[in-house]
Amino acid sequence: MYKKLLILFLCLGTLSITAQIKTPAPSPGSTLTQTVGLTDVALEYSRPAMRGRTIFGDLVPFDKIWRTGANARTKITFSDDVIIDGDTLKKGTYAIFTKPAATAWDVYFYTEYAGSGAPQTLDNSKVALKTSVKTQEIPMDIQSFTITFDDLTDNSGVLGIMWEKTYVGVKFTVPTDAIAAKSIQDVMSGPSANDYHGAASYYRSSGKDLKQALVWSNKATEMNKNAFWMTREKSLIQAALGDKKGAIESAKKSLEVAEKAGNADYIKMNKASIAEWSK
């Protein structure tokens, strides 16, 4: 009986050690996505709360680099290049660091976005862009640290940072007109070489209409004469149609360009096909 009780207590003790206690995070994580014009912007950050504390100038000291949130570094991702304060910020992911002051903040977009906390000193080579913005007073306390996308238009948005009674807005513009113009041009000009090549390759590999596949392949190779992979596909279609002479001619063209490009795989494949079709 004693042994049974001992085993039971040991089992209960093990369960209590391995059990996971769930409690609310003091600074819960937040993910925000927003399309501005035709540009996608994504934000990941944590949201500490005031909890009766004085924030700016105390919990968050003035004139020191702040991670702009809590826990992991706040990260923002732009799908296209954007313009901030007249400077270009390349598309990609950045940490947002700030240096708060009473009347204005410095805002940094930092290429080293992984990790937690802010470095003691920023590496200037990793500062992709820096801007300074004036603070605005909010008439009531914002209890939880908040980042928003405000004042959205087809061509711009404002990255809003607010906590306590302070709001800071970083305006950015997006290349909507350029993206839209390229999209219209691409559609109006018809399929690209890659489109024709993809359709031809699919028809051949799927056993569909090889004559139609050859029509598309001819268009692809005419539009991009240096694409040895497209000419290689044309040779395969010709061989499948029984035109070995044409297949060999296309394979030789593909081989010539592949050799100039130094592509060993296509050099090997073309040589093997030429040897096979020459029998």
Rank of each mutant, 00 (worst) to 15 (best):
A213V: 07
L43I: 05
A199C: 04
N224R: 14
F172Q: 02
A264Y: 01
E222L: 11
E256N: 11
P28Q: 06
W105A: 05
D154S: 07
K244P: 02
K4A: 12
E164A: 13
N71S: 08
G160R: 03
K99M: 14
K208W: 07
F97R: 00
L152H: 04
I83H: 05
D243S: 10
K75Q: 12
K245F: 04
L59Q: 06
A272Y: 02
N226C: 08
N224W: 03
A19V: 11
D195V: 13
L5D: 05
I84K: 12
S217R: 03
R53N: 01
D63K: 14
Q120G: 15
R204N: 07
S278K: 13
L12S: 09
S278D: 03
T231F: 05
S189G: 11
Y110F: 13
A25R: 14
I17L: 15
P191Y: 11
M50I: 10
S125Y: 06
A180W: 11
D58M: 12
T173Y: 11
L59F: 10
L15T: 02
A213T: 02
G29E: 01
T88M: 13
G52T: 03
A261R: 05
V60G: 09
R204H: 09
A25E: 07
S217Y: 01
T131W: 12
M1K: 08
D85I: 05
F172V: 06
T135R: 10
D209I: 09
A25L: 15
L12R: 06
I179W: 02
F78S: 05
